[in-house]
């Protein structure tokens, strides 16, 4: 249980680590959208090169990225195999009832590269940004929503608290599991129904203590006169530096390249 890492922030001293979290977040969104707007291999190569560049700049060992890709390996495999069977036109492989066409092969390869780009880019964000920085960035970026009377500060506070308590609750689960095992709870054997039933002695104490903890925390916050975001200042104020501008410029340049490829070179997928 204790081996589960959440947020997966990996400390290091790289350009990507020092980028403003708001910039990183916005660029990630733009990147993901642009990756889905590629229609031929030339255009697709742009986000791929960009992702590889980020991996190098982040100074994080490649095996960490491999680990995050391993988690979705099954998804990649299934989607690419399924896509192999859909396609028209020139048949390049035929065996009994299986027909694989060139366009299907192209599609399949395209999807694999797209998913890889998505995973790498989101991994770059979570590896190089602390969860607190991330929620900070989300709070700042959502500020315009105040117009619609959405309490952005509360949402950000909830996210911060939730992230803060993930390790605590994991530890708690570990403790409760041990205590119930000491009472002879059998968590490892039996059918599905029995295993679900075996979880009750763990889930109930966990919920009880989580609710208790939440109430204690609320009390402690009120004791320190917490009353929402009004008039609060920050210890660390986010600010845009020249490296952030550089990052944006590089991204816009690659985006332009992608659009040019898309427009002037024939589409291979639709």
């Amino acid at each position: 249980m204790r081996d589960i890492t959440f947020g997966q922030y990996i400390p290091s001293d790289s350009v990507i680590h020092r980028l403003d979290p708001r910039v990183k977040l916005v660029l990630l969104f733009a990147y993901i959208i642009s990756t889905f707007c590629t229609f031929n291999f030339y255009a697709l190569s742009v986000p791929l090169v960009f992702a590889v560049l980020c991996i190098f700049l982040s100074k994080i060992p490649f095996r960490q990225y491999m680990k995050s890709m391993k988690a979705v390996f099954a998804v990649i495999l299934i989607t690419s195999v399924l896509n192999l069977f859909y396609g028209h036109g020139e048949v390049i492989f035929e065996w009994v009832f299986i027909k694989i066409t060139r366009s299907a092969l192209n599609n399949s390869a395209f999807i694999v590269v797209r998913i890889l780009c998505l995973i790498i880019s989101s991994a770059v964000l979570t590896f190089t940004t602390t969860p607190t920085d991330l929620t900070d960035a989300i709070e700042r970026l959502m500020k315009p929503l105040k117009v619609f009377h959405i309490n952005v500060h509360s949402i950000a506070m909830m996210m911060t608290i939730a992230l803060r308590f993930v390790p605590t609750l994991l530890e708690e689960t570990d403790k409760i599991m041990m205590a119930q095992k000491a009472r002879g709870a059998d968590l490892e054997s039996g059918g599905v129904l029995q295993r679900v039933k075996a979880l009750i002695p763990i889930l109930i104490p966990l919920f009880v203590s989580a609710i208790q903890r939440a109430m204690d925390l609320a009390m402690a916050m009120e004791c320190r006169c917490y009353n929402g975001g009004k008039g609060r200042t920050r210890m660390k104020v986010l600010s845009i530096h020249s490296r952030d501008i550089m990052g944006i410029v590089v991204f816009i340049f690659s985006l332009t390249l992608l659009i040019i490829f898309d427009i002037f070179i024939a589409h291979t997928v639709r």
Binding site: E172, A179, Q180, A182, R183, G184, P201, P205, V208, S209
Partner: peptide
């Protein structure tokens, strides 16, 4: 598992292990 029945273990702050509907049922677990 048999070892755990022979060597009973009361943890620190064991209250958190209570989960049943009644005290009687919980002791019976």
């Amino acid at each position: 598992r048999e070892v755990r029945f022979k060597v009973g273990m009361v943890f620190q702050y064991p209250e958190y292990q209570l989960f049943e509907e009644t005290v009687y049922k919980d002791i019976a677990f």
